[in-house]
């Protein structure tokens, strides 16, 4: 127990990095995902095709590869090539990747809304953005909570991929101690951290789902 208390500060610091990656990714990838979803269902062909290709690319290749590409290969790409420090590189990869997944969830949610809702809004004089903001998106949110919850929990665990960029997240902090002290208990503590985070998320989403359920039959 004493030993665990002693290594705790280092692990907490690592968990802080993990949490930062998690939160920044959520905050940035959800709006981007929504924009992509709207682009994907747009009637303007070039836009929907481009978004479609983007989603295919991001979901069709490993996140780890994307992260390595942005960190190591991007600097050598002509014109857009820039050298990003490890943290921004990791965030960029996570945001671009998760936005694609969220886009698919949002798109399915939007398309599940009955056409009658659009018509009901239209005959009341509402325009596209009013219809989306007031009628379609609030109903979409209710339906997408379960898949979004899944995706968010996956993200908590995916943050450990930043390991490959040698950043001191929770997993690397644990491994550092394991190698130093020749004991595996830091891994157990790290697992407990991940479990607590995913448990909190699960509860949070359960609460949201319950709150949304008030208007159901």
């Amino acid at each position: 127990m004493d030993y665990i208390l002693k290594i705790l500060p280092q692990l907490v610091e690592g968990a802080g990095v993990t949490l930062q990656v998690f939160l920044i990714t959520i905050v940035l990838s959800m709006p981007l995902g929504l924009a992509l979803a709207l682009g994907r269902i747009s009637h303007w062909r070039p836009l929907s095709t481009a978004v479609n290709g983007y989603i295919w690319l991001m979901r069709g290749t490993p996140l780890m590869l994307q992260m390595l590409f942005i960190y190591f290969a991007l600097p050598f790409v002509p014109v857009i090539g820039i050298r990003l420090p490890d943290f921004p590189a990791a965030i960029l990869a996570f945001v671009l990747n998760y936005a694609a997944y969220f886009a698919e969830i949002f798109r399915a949610g939007i398309q599940s809304i009955d056409r009658g809702q659009y018509e009901g809004a239209k005959v009341l004089g509402m325009n596209y953005s009013q219809t989306m903001r007031r009628i379609v998106l609030p109903q979409m949110i209710r339906r997408i909570l379960p898949p979004v919850s899944n995706e968010t929990i996956t993200l908590v665990k995916d943050t450990s991929l930043i390991y490959v960029l040698a950043m001191n997240d929770l997993l690397r902090a644990a491994r550092g101690i394991v190698q130093r002290d020749f004991t595996t208990s830091p891994f157990v503590v790290a697992a407990a951290f991940y479990l607590i985070m995913t448990l909190l998320l699960t509860w949070g989403f359960q609460y949201l789902e319950k709150r949304q359920a008030v208007c159901d039959e």
Binding site: D114, G116, G120, R134
Partner: peptide
């Protein structure tokens, strides 16, 4: 409409006041 097309996420009152507020 035949199938009402009420907004299910809004109460009866909210359904009625929605358009006068957002549109008008």
């Amino acid at each position: 409409f035949q199938h009402f097309n009420l907004f299910p996420h809004m109460t009866v009152l909210q359904n009625i006041i929605e358009a006068p507020i957002t549109v008008k």
